[in-house]
């Protein structure tokens, strides 16, 4: 039983993975969602290919025993498809909630992180009550405005 890799399938995998990862790097949740779906297809195809050459059935009696393909990866892929399906619906719901609450479905940066990065100096000193957090860097106010706007 000599298993060789189908070149076209390898190419399809490469395309699916690169498209998926490219979409994952977008800002809009909808594109990310599509990216995850595409990536999921890629992963499932990889699982399928792990079970042997394509276009062979894993069903007893349908094909001669020496041509039967490994059923386990197909079972794994089925499970993975179910999971991807469930998480896709969840992401859809999340995108919808985001659209309702914030008005867009953009995935944003870590606000607090930028605020801390923009702070003038470390205020980790242990003297009590020295730092006045209320007057923060200008970026902070811009960000919180953004958030406040979103909340409305």
């Amino acid at each position: 039983m000599n298993i060789t890799i189908n070149l076209s399938m390898a190419l399809v995998l490469a395309v699916l993975y690169s498209v998926g990862f490219y979409l994952l790097m977008q800002r809009s949740l909808m594109r990310i969602l599509i990216g995850i779906v595409v990536l999921g297809h890629g992963a499932n195809l990889l699982l399928q290919l792990a079970g042997g050459a394509p276009a062979r059935a894993p069903v007893l009696d349908a094909v001669p025993p020496q041509e039967i393909s490994d059923p386990l990866p197909q079972a794994l892929a089925l499970t993975a498809i179910v999971i991807t399906f469930a998480l896709t619906t969840y992401l859809l719901a999340l995108g919808y909630r985001s659209w309702v609450l914030v008005g867009h479905d953009e995935v944003q940066d870590d606000v607090e992180d930028r605020r801390i990065a923009a702070r003038r100096g470390p205020d980790g000193a242990m003297e009590e009550g020295t730092a006045e957090e209320t007057e923060a860097a200008p970026e902070d106010t811009a960000d919180s405005h953004e958030l406040e706007e979103g909340r409305r």
Binding site: L24, L39, L94, V102, Q108
Partner: peptide
Amino acid sequence: SASRIRSGMTYVIVSLM
């Protein structure tokens, strides 16, 4: 809330990846 959606999205996407 808006902030939870924001942080939740990051979490979900990273975990999914």
